[in-house]
Structures are given as C-alpha cells and as structure tokens.
Write a protein that binds this DNA or RNA. Sequence first.
DNA 1: GAAACGTGTGTAATCGATTCCACATACTCT
DNA 2: AGAGTATGTGGAATCGATTACACACGTTTC
Lengths: 329, 329
Amino acid sequence: MTTINDIAKMANVSRTTVSRVLNNNGYVSESARERVMKVVEETGYIPSVSAKSLRTKRSGVIGVILPKISTETASRVVGGINEVVAKEGFQILLTDTELNHEKEIEYIRLLHSRHVDGIILLATNVNDRLLHAIEDARLPFISLGQELPGVTSIVYDDYHASKDMTNMIINKGHKKIAYIGVGEDDPAVGVLRKQGFIETIEEAGLKLEESWLSYGDFSIESGYESMKQIIETNPGNFPTAVFVVTDRMAIGAMEYLKEQGLQIPQDIAITGIGASVMSKYVSPSLTTIDYFNKEAGIMAAELLLEQLQDQNTNKKFLQNYRLIERDSV
Amino acid sequence: MTTINDIAKMANVSRTTVSRVLNNNGYVSESARERVMKVVEETGYIPSVSAKSLRTKRSGVIGVILPKISTETASRVVGGINEVVAKEGFQILLTDTELNHEKEIEYIRLLHSRHVDGIILLATNVNDRLLHAIEDARLPFISLGQELPGVTSIVYDDYHASKDMTNMIINKGHKKIAYIGVGEDDPAVGVLRKQGFIETIEEAGLKLEESWLSYGDFSIESGYESMKQIIETNPGNFPTAVFVVTDRMAIGAMEYLKEQGLQIPQDIAITGIGASVMSKYVSPSLTTIDYFNKEAGIMAAELLLEQLQDQNTNKKFLQNYRLIERDSV
DNA sequence: GAAACGTGTGTAATCGATTCCACATACTCT
DNA sequence: AGAGTATGTGGAATCGATTACACACGTTTC
C-alpha cells in the first residue's frame, strides 16, 4: 500500500503539502500541486480512510438499520437513501435487525463505534432503552416510519391513510368489514392503522364484531391464516370486505379466498397498504395505498445531510400518500 | 468519547492490559481482567474501529457491489450474505452501480481504500478493466452471477436452466416458441440463457423465426413492449409459447397478452426465470426457475470468509436451480 | 542452585492521515 | 524603511488502538 509518506517523498514535498493538495485547503504553489497530482495519478494512491477517520472523526459512512433487509419496502427506502448520499460521496453501512428489538440498540452502538457520520433507522417500535441509545450516540439521527420523541422523524400518515381507505370501502356500500392487522408493539402499523380503521367504522355507525379482527406477522402466509380464521369462525356471516394493513398479508388473504372459491370483490372485497409491485399484478389487482417509500428514503437522507451541517433540527415530517383504487374492491 | 486510555486509568492498568482483555490474548491476571471488564461495562466503552483498523489493516467490513439495490434478486442475495457475515461480526458496506459498468471499477477502488476485508460483486458484465481493478485490489473477492477468470465465482447454471425450461415447453407440444431476452453485454442473462434456448430449439428440429425474438431491459414495462412487438409483427402467426428470461419481463408480457384478451396458457403459454415472489401470485401463476438467490448469497459469504483465512481458492461454483411448474404453461 | 520456563505487566513504536504552529519569502502600504 | 499581510512549506503532535520487547517474579527441572 502506498501511503501519504510515499507520495510526499516521490513528489519531493512534505506530507503536509500532499494533504493540502488532496483536501484542497491551505496554500500550495502551482508547481507543488502539479507534482503531487502527477505522482498520485501514477501510483493510483488512495488515502487510508481509517487513518483519516481516526484523525477527523468523520468516516463518510451513513449507517442504516433495517428491520428486514429483503423486503420491498426496505429496498425501496435504501434505494432512495443511496441515491442521495452517494452523490455526496457517502457510503451506506447496512445492518439488519431481523425484527429483533434488542439488535436495534446493539447496532446503534456498533455503528457509533464505527464512526459513522449519521444513522437512519427504519424503526418498528419505541422504547426507552432505544431512545437512550440514540441519545448516547450523539449522532445525526433520523427515524423513518415511527415517531421517536426528540429525534427527527419521518412518518407515514398511517392514521389518515387508514381512515381514507376505510371510508372508501364504506362508500362502496360495505357494512360488514373485517380487519387483518399486526401486533400493537408496532406503533405505526399495529396501532395507528388499526385506530384509523376502527374510528372510521365507529364514525359511520357500523358494527364491529370481535371475530372479524385477526392478526398476522407481516408474512403472506400469516395473511392466509388470518383470513382463514375469520372465514372459519364466522360461518354464514361472512364480512363483505376486509381491510388488511399490508399488501403481503392482503395477498395471502386473497389466496385463501380464491381457494375457497369466493369471488373478489363480488363476494368479499379486500384492500392492502404499501403499493408493492405485486399488488398491481395479482388478480384481481389490489386496491392499496402508496407510501412513496423511495421518496421517504430520499427525504431521510436529505434531512440527515442537513443535520451533518447544521445542528439538530428535530422535527417531525409527515410523508404523504396516495390511495390507488384497483379491482379488489 | 471514552478511549482505551481512559479505561486504563480507571482500571489502574496500562492500556496494553486493556487491549489484552478486550482481545483475549496474552496473559492477564484474573483480578486485572475483572477490573477492566467492570470499567468497560460501566462506561459502555466501545473501541474505535478506525484506530483498530488503521493498526491491524482489517476493518470487519465486507463490501458488496450491486447492480441495482432495489430488486428482489439483490435483496435476497444481500439477505443471505448478511446472515452469514453478521454471525462473524462483519458489517456490510453497500454500493449500487445503477447498472453503470464504470462504477463497478470505481467502487472496487473505493472499497479498497476503505480497508474492507473482502468484496462480493454481483457482476453483470466482464471486461479487462474490471479484471484489472480486481487484481489491483488484491483482496479476497467473490463474483456472483458471472464467471470472472481468475476470480472465485459463483454462477447460476443459466445454460442448463434454459435448456430444461425450453425442453419442458417443447414437451408440452409447443412448436412455435418466441423469446424475450436482454442485451448480450450481459454474459449470463443475455448470452447463456439465449444460447440454452436456441440450442434446444434447434436440437428439437424446430423453426425459429427472427420476428419471434425480442429484447428488453429487465423492466416489467420492457416485457410488455417486447410482447407487443412480437404479437404485432406476427399477425395471424402467433407463437404458442414465449420463453422470457426474467420473471419481471414475463409479467409485463402477461399483462399485454391479457389486455389483448389472449388466454394464458391456452392461447399462448409463458415462462419466466427467477422465482420472484410475484411469480407465484400473478394469474395464472408463472412457471419459472428458482435460482436460490439467498443460498447463493450465503455461499458467496462463506467462500469469502474462507478466503479471509486461507489463501485464494479461485474456483468456479455452479449454483443449482429448480424448475417450478405452475399454471402459465 | 542455576538455567529454563510460565505468567503478568508496562513502555514505547507504530499504523496513515490531519492540522497547529513556526518560519521563510515576497509584496503592499503608510 | 519598517510594519503588516498574503503566500508557501515543513516539523511535529495528535487521533486510539495493537504489539514487539523488556522486565519481574514464581515455579520446574536437572
């Protein structure tokens, strides 16, 4: 490995001067600059990032913590983040919590020790230890998907999205509407979406049977099972529509309905949330809500870069959404 | 930030001893070890990775170069890689070439300068400058998806997979089979898959019309357009089956056929490659080939970790595949 | 009882950069 | 002419870890 010292010797200057040339600061004569650049090009020298980062406390790396790496949402968000930070010469250091809350905290500390310049967390829950870990890291920090107190957050408008969707279902004349959700340790998907649904149902004066509520774990299979449960526990009293909080679970639910020979949407209508690519190509195509994940990633990255300059903004940003009406309702 | 010096002072030992405790090497008395551990836990001290990496030349980071970050294939592979390397305490540094060949080279050099311990490249093409860059980096290196001479490569068996698929189509009685592919600068998807298809067609003594060949760019839309082109340029002489080299393009093609009121598979059968989640849930469900992307990622990571120990293995590994017959043929 | 070895600890050099400071010129302004 | 400023350069400290080496002590071994 060639180092700055080698370059200095070869160009007949001190390493101070080499550093000045490379970082474009301080006075350097034209001739010295040319000599240095020539040697740099000839040798293909690249400065050691470790040394640089040790000295400057900046690494040019952004840490990203994902709940699950191989999901459409995650990869769209990461794509958005990457688009922005790559332009500024940053890299992404990726970690995957596999939906394990402990790991979120562990990874924050780990990224910290790696001297990342900032962290973007696709949060799935809120708890004191997590907030503490963020506080301790004292790093530019963005939470995406959940509102974390004291942290700049970008959140999807889950509540209103759910209300809009539910209202749309009601306006189509449905009165018996079932719900497939996820656990309430997830404040956004688990709590807000449910709240939007239930409040809208109540506002419309509709009845809500306990047996029409079921819960999955984000997977297609769990959507299938939840739908099965609802159908099997309500013989002769099927709901006429099902509000499902994610596209994947909605698609699982559709599978079950199709297997049972039930027509969508004639017998039972169904909706999802997330605007996955799949939602467009299943039959019937799925009515869903687009959260603009990539744009959210872009926004997160931009806010983070801003924080790298100025001090903490610590605001909350509501990402907008769009209801996509298709053939499943 | 607490440093090793702070810990040393607080525990009343030299920083050498602290380092010994943390890295578990050399002799340390039980009492010293306990004192150090106590202080470490109290302070939540984490060693600076930059300093460590500067000294040891190892960073605990694996560089991954993707052609496109937000695709199902990429995220499955990364998921597999992550599963393996995370267990060994490695992180993933992610870069995205956005299908730009120049960036592959640029990123290899950049990852090198970041002292990554190894690189996994999801290659999309082969050229001398790329090989040169890999050589220069002198790093444990794995190529996934393309065979690179002199580099340990994991390749999908595109040729035989295509042959199997084509044979399966032929065995169903089809004689007029169209092809939707991608550009031939991609040796695996563009060349091998086409070769497998064409050779099988010829072996079976079938005719191959030039107008039954069409090319897209991996996107769903390009599949749609390619299908449209084939249908429009062959009025009254439609093929009865279409071999498409990726699921996404196949799904685009299906869209067009459905729009035209053509029945799949009765009027025209269709096949994809890739076993995307979507392929299972479109109607009719798509016959495709599963390349076990996640397993390929796992294998890549394992091979890389092996290379970190021993010296260059430099072998070629053929990943196996599985034909999934569904309702589109 | 001396040599050899095992155990425990600390000193100091080192990795490859950045940056403060000192110093040397050359030019401008009263 | 002398002070002040702009320009150019290098010496040396520094960031926070690892590790070769030296040393001290206790225990075996012949």
